[in-house]
Design a protein around this nucleic acid. Structure first.
Lengths: 196, 196
DNA sequence: ATATTTCCGAACACAGTGTTCACTACTGAA
DNA sequence: TTCAGTAGTGAACACTGTGTTCGGAAATAT
């Protein structure tokens, strides 16, 4: 990632480990997974693992950071740029559908609160920015923006989790519609009545 | 709990253990707390612990169940029964304020997703019932009721957590107002337009 | 071919878990 | 007071999982 070429096998090993952990996480609770389990599945030696990561948690975080990035990225610059809404979440559900296993690892089963919180924080910040842009400066909300961001992110994650737990009963578009319906009226309600 | 009297010291020991765990949990992550830590703080012998609880998690759950009960109870039959809204959450914030440490143990810091999920599930069910009562049968929502319940519970927990993390900047009444503003318009939006 | 990097796995020390057991402390009834 | 019964104690133990170390194997580059 720095010189553009020299790391190939390094990343391979790391990828093996990450995928092993993801696979295991979609099957069982994170805290019941032992380092040995990961090693076995990835077919990697013990000392090799510890030469790459300090412990299990670091592996987790490193893997999740990737996902977090692609998530935020998906939200920030959606493929089809029709900005009917400030926050179009359809691409996000799309993305989640494509990388099912990966997302299931985060959301599914017992989840890992550490990660959920991290995602929620970033997502919340992003939403906050978005909102700030939306009500360009002078207009103020009843409620602290930070809380609004937090809230919106939380609803989004709740919907995502529900979607997974119920085997994706609706299309991404439908889920986005539900999201809009549930969240936007509430947001508007916290603003002083003023339409452009 | 069966003969109505004979347990006094039994419960005392259990209470000591629970409170020790709660105290520790408001200070550090659940999974970094060792049984020995609990023992030391409660000043209880090792074997005594294991004669009461199978493991750390059972202690956790037993303690949390109590909280869950009082939470639900508070929501179900609020002290001051002015039913202006279907879901008045003010008593809940009140309750949370009074038992600060206890709630902080659940919500604060890293939290324990196991518990949060359990609470969310119960709360969600309760809300679902409430909603079902509200739109008395014939009126139907756009969105599955189970999802609505889930959603409302999640928002409530998010607000609670935010409240704690920010050292309770608003009064319970204000928090309830925010809750109403954020959630109710969205709920109404999912109903076919029809006012009584 | 050789130097370098990466990986391996056995061995180890260590921390935490959950069990066992002989013992002590308290309680209430005869 | 004595005695039985119940609850609590703590040391010892086996066991599981963690993270480190190190000599050597294997792959890779030069």
């Amino acid at each position: 990632m720095k010189h553009g070429k020299p790391d190939r096998r390094v990343t391979r090993t790391k990828h093996l480990l990450r995928e092993a952990l993801m696979g295991l996480m979609s099957e069982q609770r994170y805290d019941t997974i032992t380092v040995q389990d990961i090693l076995d599945r990835a077919d990697i030696g013990r000392s090799t693992f510890y030469s790459h990561y300090r412990d299990k948690e670091e592996l987790l975080i490193s893997g999740m950071d990737d996902i977090l990035h692609s998530l935020i990225l998906t939200l920030e610059h959606p493929d089809h740029c029709d900005h009917k809404q400030i926050l179009s979440t359809e691409p996000l559900f799309q993305h989640a559908q494509e990388e099912f296993l990966l997302h299931k690892a985060i959301m599914g089963g017992q989840g890992i609160n550490l990660m959920i919180h991290k995602i929620q924080r970033h997502l919340g910040q992003h939403v906050e920015e978005e909102l700030k842009k939306w009500l360009h400066g002078d207009q103020m909300s009843d409620v602290p923006l930070s809380l609004l961001g937090h809230h919106v992110a939380s609803v989004l994650l709740t919907l995502l989790r529900w979607w997974f737990d119920n085997n994706k009963p609706y299309s991404p578009a439908r889920m986005d519609a539900i999201f809009q319906k549930l969240v936007m009226p509430g947001i508007r309600e916290t603003m002083p009545p003023q339409d452009t």
